[in-house]
Design a binder for these strands. Structure first.
Lengths: 145, 145
DNA sequence: TTAAGTGCAAAGGCTTTGCAGCATA
DNA sequence: TATGCTGCAAAGCCTTTGCACTTAA
């Protein structure tokens, strides 16, 4: 697949090439959490000629444009997701590796409290829980661990 | 410096070699947050012959023994710190890069709430705030950003 | 023609591993 | 002698970069 631009479409002033369109769609379809390698694998199956460099370059661009968010979920490689309107945080299961998103109003309260008490100005919050998901807890005999 | 063991001391059944003693002391002196490269640099100045491999091997060991905790603070490399009795979280300033620890009882409450609501069993909490520290806020004209 | 995006391959960080030598018991 | 730790160098991931080619305006 060549570098074809579609109807002179753009994203934030940058040409929306076929590769960019494909990558954005795949990230969207991943419904949240995908790393560069897996994204490259899926992109390759739709466009044999796409390169890993293009994946990384565009992940960077998407981040700069605020379209995509990078998350470090305690793993070796980073995960990427379409930026959601609402902030949410992540839980990763130590057994099955599943990533679950959650949201809780206490987080906002916590940010406010810490800003007041410490004098910080917080521009980004990343909360990461590790543990066992409901299914794995049950499978392990409800031991709670 | 050779691989000399001191008075047959041990840590958790493992021999406390001169290298391990030095590394633990340096991590302690770093008062919290140091990465492998910086730890190696400081260790080299005290023991020219120490190798980076030893630094990494022992950071792993210390983690397994629960002596040291690995933190991913939004940077490229991981940070290590002596494991504190009390849990605490981190704030990183986007201007000066300073790492500030803080603790707030709302975090425990949040963990409890999320466990109840989602059915998770949380074994590890990592909260990471990014923003501007009090000094940098002031230096930037109190704009709050 | 010009500016920008791409593929390819090489290079860059950070981290791990294989191996021979040395230290302790 | 047996086990384990070390230094060294090589290899391993993940990610970035240089370069020549291609595309669209």
């Amino acid at each position: 697949m060549r570098n074809i631009r579609n109807h002179s479409n753009e994203i934030a002033g940058y040409p929306l090439t076929a590769q960019r369109r494909l990558l954005l769609q795949l990230i969207r379809d991943a419904a949240g959490h995908i790393d560069a390698k897996e994204l490259y694998r899926r992109a390759s199956s739709k466009d044999e000629s796409i390169s890993l460099a293009t994946v990384y370059r565009n992940l960077r661009l998407f981040q700069e444009l605020g379209l995509v968010e990078e998350r470090r979920l305690g793993q070796l490689s980073h995960h990427y997701e379409i930026r959601h309107p609402a902030e949410h945080q992540h839980f990763v299961c130590r057994d099955c590796g599943k990533v679950i998103e959650f949201q809780n109003p206490l987080i906002d309260k916590l940010v406010g409290t810490v800003q007041d008490e410490q004098g910080f100005s917080v521009t980004r919050t990343e909360l990461y829980f590790e543990g066992y998901c409901p299914e794995c807890r049950t499978a392990n005999g409800e031991s709670g661990r």
